[in-house]
């Protein structure tokens, strides 16, 4: 009886012959699909894009400048308000300790005079007194409101 000689390569060759044409058709179709799907932009596409990029770059530069300026203005304003409040507090304290008449005392008297006249008006109209301490608080609140408005409108919304 003839012995059956099993060789795995025989099977490989059978399968390979079967799959090869199909694979070739697939490769052929892949190429055709690729060719069909490919579309090209117009010639001036890159030129137009680079123009937009340059404009965007300029805008970004301007934004940085504006942001810097806003930072300085805001910082300066905060500094000015703080300095004014500190100065005013020191003057008031000094005035209470010594009764020397000087430039600052004159200024303080004028300020007190303005505050008193406002106080009289508010007492008459609204029914509450308005002294220099209330004035400082109102000034501080105004400063905070201004800062909040300024920061919200210019800084945060621009950089979201």
């Amino acid at each position: 009886m003839k012995k059956f000689n099993f060789k795995i390569s025989n099977f490989y060759s059978i399968f390979n012959e079967m799959s090869e044409p199909s694979k070739n058709i697939d490769t052929y179709l892949d190429g055709k699909i690729r060719q069909t799907l490919q579309s090209n932009v117009s010639d001036d596409f890159t030129f137009e894009l680079m123009k937009r990029i340059e404009i965007e770059k300029e805008f970004a530069k301007e934004d940085v400048k504006t942001f810097k300026m806003v930072k300085y203005i805001t910082g300066g304003f905060v500094l000015a308000i703080t300095a004014f409040i500190i100065l005013l507090t020191v003057i008031i304290n000094n005035n209470e300790e010594s009764q020397d008449v000087g430039f600052f005392n004159t200024m303080l008297e004028k300020f007190s005079g303005i505050v008193e006249s406002i106080s009289v008006v508010t007492t008459e109209m609204l029914g509450f007194t308005f002294d220099y301490q209330t004035g400082l608080v109102v000034l501080l609140i105004t400063g905070c409101v201004f800062l909040f408005y300024f920061a919200d409108r210019i800084i945060f919304k621009k950089h979201v």
Partner: peptide
């Protein structure tokens, strides 16, 4: 920014093909 041109040149047609679909 001119370096961006390299990206654009390489990807523009492929991106356009997708968008056209």
């Amino acid at each position: 920014t001119s370096a961006f041109r390299i990206i654009s040149d390489e990807l523009k047609d492929k991106a356009f093909s997708l968008t056209m679909k």
